[in-house]
C-alpha cells in the first residue's frame, strides 16, 4: 500500500514541477541568444562591414556560430582580446588588413568638390552625412564611425578619411606623443 502512496506522491510532485518548469519556460523565455547580445556589445558598432558581414550584429552572430574573432579592424587588438575572453578561445592576431589602420578616423567631405550626388548618404550606415540632391553634403563628425563606406561610392573622390585630432579632453597623458611638460612630483629637501 505504502508503495502506491509513494508513487502517487512522487507522481504528483513530478507533475507540479513539470507544470512550473513548463510555465517558466514560456513566461521567462529569452528572446535572443544572450551570447550574441554580449558579443554585439563588445563590437565597436561602426557597421563598416570590413569583417565581411553587413554590420556588427551579423558578425556577432557569426562569431557565436564559430567564425574567427580577428576580423574586426575598427575594434583592434583590444576588442579581439575581449572577444577571445568571452568565447573562451585563444587570441589570434588580427587580419593583415585589420592591422594597418589602428588610428581612429572620421570622414571629411571637401565641400567645394561635392556635386551633390547623394551616393555617400546612401552608403552611410549611421546616417552621419547630411545633404540633398544637387546640394553640398557634409559629415556630422560626432556621429561618424569612420567606417570608410562612403569613400568608395563618391564619383568625384571628394571624401577623405582624416585622423581624429587629440584634444585636451581626449589626451591620454602620453608625454611621448606630445613631448611637452611633465609633472614635478618630488622636491629635493
Amino acid at each position: 500500500m505504502s508503495v502506491y502512496i509513494a508513487l502517487v506522491a512522487i507522481g504528483a510532485l513530478a507533475l507540479t514541477f513539470g507544470l512550473v518548469l513548463g510555465y517558466a519556460s514560456i513566461r521567462f523565455k529569452v528572446q535572443s541568444d544572450p551570447l550574441v547580445q554580449q558579443l554585439d556589445e563588445l563590437l565597436p558598432q561602426t557597421q563598416c562591414g570590413q569583417c565581411g558581414y553587413p554590420g556588427c550584429r551579423p558578425y556577432a552572430e557569426a562569431i557565436a556560430n564559430g567564425d574567427d574573432i580577428n576580423k574586426c579592424p575598427p575594434g583592434g587588438e583590444a576588442t579581439m582580446k575581449k572577444l577571445a575572453d568571452l568565447m573562451g578561445v585563444e587570441p589570434k592576431p588580427l587580419n593583415a588588413e585589420a592591422q594597418e589602420n589602428d588610428v581612429k578616423k572620421v570622414a571629411y567631405i571637401r565641400e567645394d568638390e561635392c556635386i551633390g550626388c547623394t551616393k555617400c548618404i546612401q552608403a552611410c550606415p549611421v546616417d552621419a552625412i547630411l545633404g540633398a540632391s544637387k546640394q553640398m553634403h557634409t559629415v556630422i563628425t560626432d556621429e561618424c564611425t569612420g567606417c570608410d563606406l562612403c569613400v568608395e561610392p563618391c564619383p568625384v573622390d571628394c571624401i577623405d578619411m582624416v585622423p581624429v585630432k587629440t584634444t585636451t579632453n581626449s589626451w591620454k597623458w602620453n608625454f611621448k606623443q606630445s613631448p611637452k611638460g611633465d609633472i614635478p612630483i618630488k622636491m629635493v629637501s
Binding site: Q45, Q47, G55, D127, E143
Partner: peptide, 13 residues
C-alpha cells in the same frame, strides 16, 4: 556610449 549611439542610428536607419 558612442558605439551605443552608432548602433541605435544604424538600427533606426
Amino acid at each position: 556610449s558612442r558605439a551605443e549611439k552608432a548602433k541605435e542610428r544604424f538600427e533606426a536607419r
